[in-house]
Design a protein around this nucleic acid. Structure first.
Length: 616
RNA sequence: GCCGGCGUAGCUCAGUGGUAGAGCAGCUGAUUCGUAAUCAGCAGGUCGUCGGUUCAAUCCCGACCGCCGGCUCCA
């Protein structure tokens, strides 16, 4: 008896697309276990959805092979929200090709062709995939003597499976776009043409996903940055270099003010360092060996090579080394909003999120080995405090451990990894271990924040470093009078101001909370009779430390309200004859909610409640 | 950096082998208005840059620059 027959018996044949037997997900065509103990996987299950997506990829490949017989197939896995398949073709697919492929797919789905699994020897499989060089390459690397093939219609693919019982079970899908992708993700290999598609169990799920994509488009910080006049990048200046316009600059200033205040309070010393330094500095630090290709070229000055800084750490180390340090002085914490420049490949630049010049909210902490646990613990606290303040309270945390190529001793690495782990455990923070993903100089904790739409953004990083203190001989005098090597922690909380600002824009869809809003209050006179009163209100708001503007243009109230709301200003204060006469204002929130007219003092109470304290 | 797409007024976009259009924004004037767009007029472009094909190029071809979607990378 097959699993499909068993499913029929149990009345599950309609919904089941695969079966769970033991720990494995199997095709329904596989034999059922004697005792009939099988679980049913449906398209509503995560595993089922993956099967559905993977099978949709096969259906697409079948359609492509039908329309473009010369296309060479490679691989086509399920991914988040859908699938892709990479083909080697002479000329990449056009959007019109995608439409044709989609139609052909619909044919295959309508025909409800069975997915047929076949197990053959590797040698036989090699014969079947003659003329498919990518499949041949894969086959030659598979250690097993027997491999499985899946056939749908005339299309056969080397595949582990499992798959849907038939193409008719494919759900709602849509081909999205094409993209170049290196064979096996290696830039030394040939570039294939990838087709991305999304696939869901139901039309409704697909539509919800397309709606989400629309929402993401609406929140795009590049679009909002232009609309709200926050920042720009400019051809004449150069790609990846950000111009902060006055409104964006207000938000940045508030971010910086908050950051400086809290760092001073948390025991950091604020420092400044130059933008260039002798190239040798980066030779000593080791960055030149590891990251030369991401550094801007050096500049020759009076026979000496200088380098635009890609990092701040060597400068802070030199400040540390400017005099003898006692074990009593530690930890020493140097913090700087340090602007660095990195030569990112042109194809990776992206608005504020990937740039060539950016300001890190950087700090380097020098400490004794015995202080590591406690420092990491309080650092985690501090990081989460800062992130929460900006409205982020969901995180994905990763602990990255020793990579293959590393500096320092295994003993030190293990101690540092243990310290990081211990701090996370003590705080009760869930995290994932990324084995081998640490930086060459030490292990790290990365915190990705989740935005309003649940997307993750890498921002905070806490990295232990044994390498630099050794290379630069950053030492302290221990209790016994001996020179000991300090441990250094690199850390950035927002990561870079540019990137964090971009994430903030998308998180809030440009509607910043009142404490961050570039303009907090628009004062809107109904006619020019109230211009004087409006000016007075603005002056008083500004005197109280708020950012307020009057819209004195010769326009109707409706127009001014519309503009204020599109500008995402938290409050509009309508002032007409009534308000002017009674010395009141009529507040309106940007969402449209109207508040009955109140005195300015009462309004200041409301506003103050939202901004905590006016941070100017 | 690699593959593909795109580049027309400040912005969003239409358009054609015979040297360009709309809406919004801007300017001028009228309107004095109560919670998401008042009306009229005016002005605005070396069609990304440089080369080529052609009697003629914004349109076709090439190179470059930039942007977009991916890939690779991300201390």
């Amino acid at each position: 008896m097959t699993l499909l027959e068993l499913a029929k018996k149990q009345g599950k044949a309609k919904v089941a697309i695969a079966a769970r037997v033991g720990g494995a997900v199997l095709d329904l065509s596989m034999p059922a276990p004697e005792d009939g103990s099988a679980g049913w996987v449906t398209a509503a299950d995560p595993e089922g959805l993956e099967v559905l997506r993977h099978s949709t990829a096969h259906v697409m490949a079948a359609a492509v092979k039908d329309l473009f017989p010369d296309a060479k197939i490679s691989i086509g896995p399920a991914i988040e929200n859908g699938f892709y398949y990479d083909f080697d073709v002479e000329t990449p697919f056009t959007p019109e090709d995608l439409a044709r492929i989609e139609l052909k797919m619909a044919e295959i789905v309508r025909a409800d062709l069975p997915f047929v699994r076949e197990e053959v020897s590797r040698e036989e499989a090699r014969g079947r995939f003659r003329g498919e060089p990518y499949k041949e390459e894969l086959l030659s690397e598979i250690p097993d003597e027997r491999v499985s093939l899946y056939k749908v219609g005339n299309f056969i693919d080397l595949c582990r499976g499992p798959h849907l019982p038939a193409s008719g079970k494919v759900g709602a899908y849509k081909l999205m776009n094409t993209a170049g992708a290196y064979w096996r993700g290696d830039s030394k290999n040939r570039m294939l043409t990838r087709i991305y598609g999304c696939a869901f169990a139901t039309r409704k799920d697909l539509e919800a996903h397309l709606a989400l994509l629309e929402e993401i488009k609406k929140r795009d910080h590049r679009k909002l940055g232009k609309e709200l006049d926050l920042f720009s990048v400019n051809d004449e200046i150069g790609p990846g270099l950000i111009l902060w316009h006055p409104k964006g600059a207000v938000v940045r200033r508030i971010m910086e003010d908050f950051w400086r205040t809290e760092h001073a309070r948390a025991g950091y010393d604020l420092v400044f360092s130059p933008h260039i330094a002798k190239l040798d500095l980066w030779r000593v630090s080791g960055h030149l060996d590891y990251y030369r290709q991401s550094m801007f070229g050096s500049i020759e000055v009076e026979g000496q090579d200088y380098q635009i800084k890609p990092m701040n750490c060597p400068f802070h180390i030199q400040i540390y080394k400017s005099r003898m340090r006692s074990y009593r002085d530690l930890p020493i914490r140097y913090a700087e909003l340090g602007t660095v420049y990195r030569y990112e490949p042109s194809g990776t630049l992206h608005g504020l999120l990937r740039v060539r010049g950016f300001t890190q909210d950087d700090a380097h902490i020098f400490l004794r080995p015995d202080q590591l646990d406690e420092e990491i613990f309080s650092l985690l606290d501090f990081t989460l405090f800062v992130l929460r303040r900006f409205g982020f309270d969901r995180y994905d945390i990763y602990l990255s451990t020793r990579p293959e190529k590393y500096a320092g001793t295994v003993d030190n690495w293990e101690k540092a990894e243990a310290a990081l782990k211990k701090a996370l455990d003590l705080k009760g923070l869930p995290y994932e271990v990324d084995p081998g993903e640490g930086v060459f100089y030490g292990p790290k904790i990365d915190i990705k924040i989740k935005d309003m739409l649940g997307r993750s953004w890498q921002c905070s990083t806490i990295q232990v470093d044994f390498n630099n203190p050794e290379r630069f001989e950053a030492e302290f005098v221990a209790e016994d009078g001996a020179q000991r090597q300090a441990i250094m922690i690199h850390r950035a909380l927002m990561g870079s101001l540019e990137r964090f600002f971009g994430v903030l824009v998308e998180h809030y869809a440009g509607a910043f909370p009142a404490w961050l809003a570039p303009v907090q209050v628009d004062v809107l006179p109904v006619t020019d009779r109230q211009d004087g009163y409006a000016r007075e209100i603005v002056a008083r708001l500004r005197a109280a430390g708020y950012r307020a503007e009057a819209d004195l243009r010769n326009e109707k109230l409706g127009f001014k309200i519309r503009e204020s709301q599109l500008g995402k200003v938290p409050y509009a204060l309508v002032v007409g004859d009534r308000e002017a006469e009674r010395k009141q204002v009529a507040p309106r929130k940007r969402g449209g909610e109207q508040i009955p007219a109140v005195s300015l003092e009462e309004f200041l109470e409301i506003l103050g409640g939202e901004t905590d304290k006016p941070l100017n």
